[in-house]
Amino acid sequence: MISCLGISKKYVSVEALKDITFEVPQGEIFGVIGPDGAGKTTLFRILTTLMLADSGTATVNGLDVVKDYREIRNHVGYMPGRFSLYRDLTVEENLNFFAKVFHTTVKENYDLVKDIYVQLEPFRKRRADALSGGMKQKLALSCALIHKPAALFLDEPTTGVDPVSRKEFWGMLQNLKRQGITILVSTPYMDEAALCDRMALIRNGSFLAIDTPEGITAQFSKPLWAVRSNRMSKLLADLRAGDGVESCFAFGDRHHVTLKREEPGRLREYLANQGHQDVEIDRIQPGIEDCFIRLTMP
């Protein structure tokens, strides 16, 4: 269980975290979703006792992150944002080393890391720097898990990892969750947010919303329309200039649009007048990213 009450942290001139309050019950996957520089890493470092907050209190498993920092260090697994294993040591040596550091052996907790480590087994004599991005990340997760932590802190674990490995990785997290491990995970990828039990959207050091993925998308109050035509780049400019349009953002092969009055027919007319052909306007369900953008809109 993780709880955070009014945590603030200021660097020289930047407020990295502003009055962060949230709680994560045991066995939940809690996502911290936000762009680079939003304050995710600072939050993780405070919760893993690596950094002191300027104000506020936080506990992990009921232990205070300042007072009981030594005890907490026995019970948490932390995977920093940077690859933080020894590149000149082999897969096996890295794992054995971290097991020893946490007073345990690979054998003792093998069942916990088995699913992950099985994939690394063929490369166990290979040095960590010769592993692929996905493999590195699996090794890092194994090392963070080897002492069966009660809470797992994963700071952007999937950044720089290919989509297939990312999907696999989230599958592993679901397995760990079933074993009762509380997981706090940060990511800049909105599509991963839907895989969390609950999540917080963070921007400039503040939480914009804390809810389940469904709860977050339900907060999107307006109908959302996806628009495409034969001239996509002109379309974006025309949509933004259109007077019935409230907001418009480019999303891959379509533009997501909200309207001031729900009159898609009018929009179609307007676009035809602007010389667009093959115009498609469909009502869609908003995703996490739509919500994030809407929440951060001025």
């Binding site: 470092r45 006792t49 090392c143």
Partner: peptide, 14 residues
């Protein structure tokens, strides 16, 4: 610099 100190500090190792 490499970042392993972070991983080491979050361990029972004094």
């Amino acid at each position: 610099e490499v970042g392993t100190m972070e991983a080491l500090l979050v361990s029972p190792l004094r």
